[in-house]
Design a protein around this nucleic acid. Structure first.
Lengths: 142, 142, 142, 142
DNA sequence: GTGGTCTAGACCACG
DNA sequence: GTGGTCTAGACCACG
């Protein structure tokens, strides 16, 4: 739908985490704007044919992390974006994630050009799923 | 200690998987050479203050992936490197590892050039620190 | 029971390996189809009167080889068939299995024509008894 | 030595079993004749650079199975050959071993010609190792 | 001494 | 309900 969330039931990534990832990405990529409302738990659960508890869990985690916020009686919204991590911390985390990829790649006997290529391919695949403008479904910020 | 394996009990990564990662890294970087013997299960378990079964589980998994091999009654050794996985499977695993990096990077608000740069930097750092393969690291019989 | 798994506790083959073999056979012969769900660990353990951990171990190994897959919170399923191993590795495994047969045959005083004949006979028997792949054997959600 | 036994220390087959297999084969292939004497335990152990207990274990098992016999004070000899299994039992065992190979092969996606070819190759390799004279007993990694 | 298998049972994550 | 991880401890096979 407008959110474009899709889940892979056979994936080894838990469903609630797949939802979290996709919402995080949508926010990071600007596809979900600050203040925008998310689909109601039951609606999204029905759309994805999954258990409502699973959606609730995902929303709950995102609220706890300050990415979404619940406005009682009205629904769940994208909250004011805030930079959670200091720059040094961001760098540290990126570096660590990159090291993990490198270790796996070396073990699988890939070389740098192959890894770089896969990175660029994967990155644009993820970007592609992010359509530039999200025209509707806004509510004024408090 | 010579192996330098350490575990973070509070991490969300299971202990046996932390051990696997660190041994894989040691092998990938040449800190563990082909034919070299690993610490006995009970010894490593005592060092890390965890249950021997947990170490055994890690060793088992590495044996199944062809990275280690068990010689009955004598111990566990780094096995001759061989290509276990089909190309499609290697690609699949590389792709999955890359996706993890991308998810993290997007979440941290990095863009592609920054990630690519970190990749290249990290890759050469790892390659530089890698120990060259020694011609004969063989089992010494007592 | 629908799976028809049975174990011989007195056998010198470990229980978890007996389970693996029988599930592999069922998949190879099409008695277990892609997407089909396996009995819950605790259920199969109760049926076979063994410890759940032993069943879990068998399932784990089959998951690692790409034959089964776990969908978190829902159960274990037969996964889409894919080529996990490189050609050299496939050859290695075939060769090893063949050596076992030859050792046994030589020990039993058979000669090559007799073994070859038994191979051809057994092969066509198995192929005949194989269940054809059904187009859609999918998970049925309760 | 004259026996031509070689062991692969890195193999996943226990050493004592490797010895058993090779002696059984030598007897089945006529390379070791009825009444022929085997090397003393200590001699063979020294030749293969393994623990004497391991050789003793192998000899013990072969004696228990009636393939060798110990003549006190003089050594261990190939015993009068006797057909241990009835024909039906031989057939049954051959058939079962063949089925195991077929299951593995099907799972690895081989077809009959490939399996037949590997069988013939493996068989002649084993036969070949039964050259009347074997100059040296090597222990070496491939 | 080495690793491999199995049991019993706890506790957690996911849906 | 489902599977996944970990501990504690027994017993066995191999060298």
């Amino acid at each position: 739908m407008s959110l474009g969330i899709s889940i892979a039931p056979a994936s080894d990534i838990p469903i609630f985490r797949q939802i979290i990832q996709q919402i995080q990405q949508a926010v990071a990529l600007g596809r979900l704007q600050v203040g925008e409302q998310l689909p109601a738990i039951r609606v999204l659960a029905e759309t994805l044919v999954i258990n409502p508890n699973t959606v609730a869990r995902a929303y709950q985690d995102l609220i706890r992390d300050g990415i979404l916020e619940s406005r009682s009686g009205r629904g769940v919204f994208v909250s004011q974006k805030r930079q959670v991590f200091a720059d040094a911390e961001r760098q540290r985390r990126l570096r660590q994630a990159t090291e993990q990829l490198c270790h796996e790649a070396i073990l699988l006997d890939f070389d740098l050009p192959q890894v770089r290529h896969t990175l660029e391919e994967t990155w644009s695949d993820l970007k592609e799923s992010a359509v530039p403008t999200s025209p509707d479904a806004k509510e004024s910020l408090p």
